[in-house]
Write a protein that binds this DNA or RNA. Structure first.
Lengths: 348, 348
DNA sequence: TCGGTACGAGAAAGCGCTCTCACGAGGAAA
DNA sequence: TTTCCTCGTGAGAGCGCTTTCTCGTACCGA
């Protein structure tokens, strides 16, 4: 490029491009927005003028009239935590959120839609609501897993297009994308039984999350259906440390455990450490099945056998559903449930 | 609140608030923007009208005239990686980026400025540049650590206020915030020598990063100044796996190593695993000092002795410097260098 | 009583863009 | 030739807000 875009000060406006091209502002607008009814020669001239002036449309002006911002928010809501450094660190360290972001970005990018990531806790909801109402974004991908979280309802009442990351605890006429949690737990139980484990236990996620409840219920019900009694349960917190502590407690209270279903890979990593620290071999003495199939599963030694949920695809689907809702706001909510699969590695 | 904000359809406009309050649009604007020259009674009336109508200013209209968006971009530039799922997963799994985000958010939030997080690779720079030129944001926090990364220069030439996360490789009239990398390496070397280690080695970061070079140079020069010869070096990649592989290689080639300086905590975690897998005790056989003092340092066994860089404060400072530049664009670039400190735990 | 001074509020001009509508030219049909 | 479309372009209104400029009112001192 030999010509250099104007810079530093103000960007050129559409009027200046129009003048440079010797056409009207309307024609420039048509060229930029790909309207078909522009003569090829004129289109060419305009495009050259755009390149020469270094013109870039002003988004504020554009979205003032189109009422579109071409961006959507990814709201990560964790109602319990204080909004502080460790909260953000947890979010930005948990592979789950990375996968969500990756999946959503991948789906949005071909449509030139930007993702604005907004972590939030309960003290902060009004900020988020205000942000959404101000028209910064055209829609919301809402990651919310706690059943008492008021945000899904609040966002829904806002009337802004939204898709939630999990089945809402209370019935809500909102689109969501989820994985069949109970089926995942069934697969884990089935696998542990199949490899001969008989004294099973589980480390659940926080039980105020529907997903944790479903995984726990699914695990229990599968075993109950096979005539096995109740199993020891410890409630974890989806962190590495929490998994370690929970496993320690489980093994000290029930030293004869030979199979462990841990409701997340991150917790499994900690649990694996605890089990091995206590002198048990994995999987021979204690078999461990995780949940997620995140990058953490490959950070473990031995490598983690786990239930894969296709988080990236789920996030991409959330984005697709959201874009459909933005395009046609009248439609009824649409929900998609994905199937988990068993990924066998070394730990079970 | 007994009155309910209008919702679902369009938000109310300022005109409607003005009518409800029986004043002009200009007065409503003044009330919203806290102009002092409004009569207290009228202000009161207007505020009530705002509450009753559930009015929220339209950001597009506002920023069209003010030329401010009240948000800044956090651009995370990793030129080498393909922009795919694993790239995003790495970014969202590395505690470093979590700390950056936490620090920046914390500093920006009191000023009601939003953070738009934009991960990018080299195939993607033009997207980012376009995004910035479109006026989505008032300024940029640029996380860029590779010396051949063209983005800092490109952003600089855009003329948009920017602060970079590290000393630029090539001289550039741009504000940056950094830590004294060489000093950090000195502290690590000093500590290893002080505890009696004599056969040192180091796992560096990618050597196309100035920060990695500085840490390596600092480590070497400290030892050279104490009359110690050259030490074995393996170049790592700032991942857990990379750290593990590097440590394995180092120990197989130099079995007598008794002190290891690893240029990041994440790599240290892997290195610790490798060292122990190979039957060495930490710190007695091999002492390990990391770099960062991130959450990973506490995920290690034994707990990691490391060089702390105050990433959150650094990010907060970046945000402060950026806001100052946005407020007064004419000023000369300003740079801040933080001091690292040694945090002694168990691994050395 | 009157002129001067503050001060608070309204009128109106845009910010840069999209999009409807009107219009002119050229070609097809009559 | 005239009439009627069709197609491509331009004129202009208006999106919702901020901000300047103007003006009306109230209060002061002379």
């Amino acid at each position: 490029m030999t010509t250099r875009p104007a810079r530093g000060g103000h960007n050129p406006t559409m009027d200046q491009v129009a003048e440079a091209a010797g056409v009207s502002r309307a024609t420039v607008s048509r060229v930029i927005n790909g309207a078909p009814s522009v003569d090829a020669k004129i289109r060419e001239i305009v495009q050259r003028a755009i390149a020469e002036t270094g013109y870039v449309p002003n988004v504020a002006a554009r979205s003032l009239v189109t009422r579109k911002s071409n961006s959507v928010a990814l709201v990560i809501s964790e109602p319990d935590r204080p909004f502080d450094s460790s909260f953000l660190n947890r979010i930005f360290t948990d592979p789950y959120f990375g996968r969500i972001t990756a999946g959503a970005t991948g789906a949005l990018r071909p449509h030139d839609i930007h993702l604005v990531i907004i972590p939030t806790d309960s003290t902060d909801h009004h900020h988020v609501i205000r942000y959404l109402r101000q028209g910064h974004v055209d829609g919301v991908l809402l990651i919310s897993s706690h059943e008492q979280d008021p945000l899904p309802r609040q966002v829904h009442e806002l009337g802004i297009p939204a898709v939630v990351s999990a089945r809402p605890a209370a019935p809500l006429a909102v689109s969501f994308v989820d994985v069949d949690q109970r089926l995942g737990a069934h697969l884990a139980a089935e696998h542990l039984l199949a490899r001969g484990c008989r004294r099973l236990a589980t480390i659940s996620g926080p039980l105020d999350m529907p997903s944790s409840q479903d995984r726990l219920d699914g695990f229990r019900s599968y075993l109950a259906n096979r005539g096995m009694g109740d199993v020891p349960v410890v409630e974890g917190d989806f962190t590495r440390h929490g998994g370690e502590a929970s496993a320690r407690r489980l093994l000290s209270e029930h030293p004869d455990i030979d199979g462990l279903f841990v409701a997340s890979d991150l917790m499994s990593e900690g649990a694996l450490r605890a089990v091995q620290d206590l002198g048990r071999r994995v999987p021979d003495d204690v078999a461990v099945v995780g949940f997620d199939d995140s990058s953490a599963a490959l950070d473990c030694r031995p490598l983690l056998t786990t239930i894969r949920q296709p988080v990236e695809e789920m996030a991409a689907e959330m984005a697709e559903v959201l874009m459909a809702r933005i395009a046609a706001p009248g439609r009824l909510p649409r929900s998609v449930v994905f199937q988990p699969t068993l990924v066998i590695r070394e730990s079970a």
